[in-house]
Amino acid sequence: MDLTLAIAILVTVVGASTPILIAALGELVVERSGVLNLGVEGMMLIGAIAGFVVQFHTGNPYLALLAGAAAGVMASLIFGFLTLSLSANQTATGLALTIFGTGFSALAGSSYSARPVTLMQPLFPVELATHPIGKVLFGYAFPIYFSFIMVVAIWYFLHKTRAGLILRAVGENDQSAHSIGYSVTGVRYLAVMFGGAMAGIAGACFPLLLTPQWAERMTAGRGWIAVALVVFASWKPFRLLAGAYLFGLVMTMELYAKAGGGPLSVIPSEVWAAMPYLATIAVLVLISIRRDASTNAPACLGKPFLPAN
């Protein structure tokens, strides 16, 4: 395998991994606050159509990302209102949000089918990306750098700031946090909105980075992979980075196998396509087997908060 092919594969892996990573980072923060939002896939689709529409009409990809984030926040607020203000079941509400997002995005996107947009351009000048090493380092669009910055920023926020400590405390023991005087519901609303913004940005990455047109269900289950990844990463940002790239790599293998090149095509591309989902199931099974060995799960994950007095 020559260097150019290796670099081409690497660049594809980065592209495939980024939306998963961004969405999973958002969900990680949400879950650390004790809320399980299974609506990531739905929020991504809503972010994808919002991003697509803005890119189509303005051609400004940064505006498109912002629109994706804003749409994701709006979708997450539906979830937040039902689960945090009305104490609805989080699992059921999250599933409903995904179904809603799928339908809503399909409806909103129906008049845009088969109409192309321009892809987001690399952040740095092309001259920097001419050399192969330069291409690996400087050849990407903004969201890729954003995802890396967010890994560090979220780690720093959770472990080095007071606000992050409060967020973890709320996810760990909501009653105690309440009795000390922190607003459990307020903290969780902010976390859920952050998760919505990240899922929306992740969704907008699909038309901006991967396929420059609107396609129904274009996120293709990546939101579910993001949810599984958070568990796989034991709620730790750097493990999430590793996990996202592992899944990105497997997904890229599928593309190359489909293209019929080299040793990968020994295994049918359908098997490769199924691989990320099989890996997700395997990971979840493995983790539930060794549940006792401190899986690091936030103790209040998925439980509605009702103040005792």
Partner: peptide
Amino acid sequence: HFSLFEAL
């Protein structure tokens, strides 16, 4: 009843 966070 202590208001402590076990994982912290």
